[in-house]
Amino acid sequence: MKKRILAALTALLVPAQAFALGETWTPLITASAFDGPRIDMLTAVGGIITLLLIIAGIAFLAKIFR
């Protein structure tokens, strides 16, 4: 019974202490943390599409000149 009372008091007092100190909660991961990987993926996709267009253009020119 004593452990339950101590656990309940701890659960109530720890958040109250953090609130009393004026600390605010900040998330560990924000949406802006994914801007770099998103830009990297867009660059990779753009490069792949560009290569496909170049290959298709060369194939088209090769077909014309045959």
Rank of each mutant, 00 (worst) to 15 (best):
M1C: 08
M1L: 14
M1P: 13
K2G: 01
K3Y: 02
K3V: 05
R4W: 00
I5H: 10
L6F: 09
A7E: 06
A7K: 04
A7P: 03
A7M: 10
A8Q: 09
A8M: 09
A8S: 09
L9I: 01
L9E: 02
A11T: 14
L12G: 02
L12D: 00
L13N: 03
L13D: 04
L13Q: 04
L13I: 08
V14A: 01
P15A: 02
A16V: 04
A18L: 15
A18P: 06
F19T: 09
A20I: 15
A20R: 13
G22D: 01
G22Y: 00
E23T: 06
E23H: 06
T24E: 07
T26P: 01
P27C: 03
L28M: 14
I29G: 02
I29M: 08
T30A: 15
T30I: 11
A31K: 11
S32M: 03
F34N: 12
D35H: 10
G36I: 05
G36H: 13
P37I: 05
I39H: 11
M41T: 10
M41N: 05
M41W: 12
L42R: 01
A44R: 03
V45A: 09
V45I: 15
G46I: 02
G47P: 00
G47M: 02
I48T: 07
I49M: 07
I49Y: 04
T50D: 02
T50A: 15
T50E: 12
L51D: 07
L52S: 15
L53G: 09
I54C: 10
I55E: 08
I55L: 15
A56C: 05
A56G: 03
I58N: 09
I58M: 06
I58G: 04
A59M: 14
A62F: 07
A62I: 08
A62T: 13
I64P: 01
F65R: 04
F65P: 03
F65L: 11
F65E: 07
